[in-house]
């Protein structure tokens, strides 16, 4: 075939009209994705902070259950955890008859719980690492001031650990954003779900999934940009002097 027909076929290959016609579907997908990301991260954070403190304990009965939790959640795919909760919970009569069933029946609720429990394991590891590297002097100074253990954590150890954990935490936020795409496999219409609908309706895989990829890319860059600002504010005392 000659160059002219090749060029014409490539132009025919992309059909932007499909995306323009379905922009509302993608927009509502963006909202679902952001909602899932934010809520699972908040749930993960609430669980991860006490778990990370327990992980640094010297008593085996304190750190071992948390260690086991982290090991199991990090050692199995999130997809399986999600399927276990969404499809698996209904296997048991006591759950179907229990007060939680109206929630566990909903894909949206199951996705947030599964993703929250999953990111909690990763966040706990991040915070544990940051707590373990708290300078000894800061802790000794706080003790010398007569701070109670609660004060010691809330005023000294945790704030300084969060600062050190920030770069790793931003990575975890981006991983969480990406893992929400699995929600489309349990009937939710997030960005990936919108793309799957468009693909199956018009059979246009490039238009459908490349648009989704661009949306994820934009959200990722916004997160990195916001995190950069936060890092400059929080870690202003650590910044290297610029010449």
């Amino acid at each position: 075939m000659d160059g002219g027909t090749l060029q014409a076929s490539i132009l025919q290959f992309f059909d932007y009209q499909v995306i323009i016609d379905n922009w509302q579907l993608y927009l509502s997908g963006v909202f679902v994705t952001l909602q899932l990301t934010a809520l699972s991260l908040i749930l993960g954070f609430v669980l991860a902070v006490p778990m990370s403190i327990m992980l640094t304990s010297r008593k085996p009965w304190v750190w071992m259950p948390v260690w086991l939790y982290v090991y199991c959640f990090r050692g199995t795919p999130l997809l399986i955890q999600l399927f276990l909760l969404y499809y698996g919970a209904g296997q048991f009569a006591f759950i179907r008859e229990g007060f939680l069933w109206p929630f566990l029946r909903e894909a949206w609720f199951c996705a947030i719980i599964a993703m929250g429990l999953n990111t909690a394991a990763y966040q706990a590891e991040i915070f544990r690492g940051a707590i373990a590297t708290t300078p000894r002097g800061e802790i000794e100074a706080a003790r010398a001031f007569g701070m109670s253990p609660f004060r010691l954590y809330s005023r000294i150890i945790l704030p300084s650990s969060f600062r050190r954990a920030l770069p790793a935490y931003v990575n975890e936020v981006i991983f969480s954003l990406q893992s929400t795409s699995l929600a489309s496999l349990v009937t939710l219409i997030d960005i990936t779900g919108a793309a799957r609908i468009v693909n199956s309706r018009y059979y246009t895989p490039y238009e459908a999934f490349l648009s989704a990829a661009v949306l994820y890319l934009v959200i990722t860059f916004v997160i990195i940009w916001l995190a950069g600002g936060l890092e400059r504010r929080w870690n202003v005392h650590l910044a290297r002097p610029t010449s």
Partner: peptide, 13 residues
């Protein structure tokens, strides 16, 4: 910067 699942569906379909 793109989720695994999206890449997989894009490259497969």
């Amino acid at each position: 910067s793109v989720p695994d699942l999206v890449l997989m569906l894009l490259l497969f379909f």
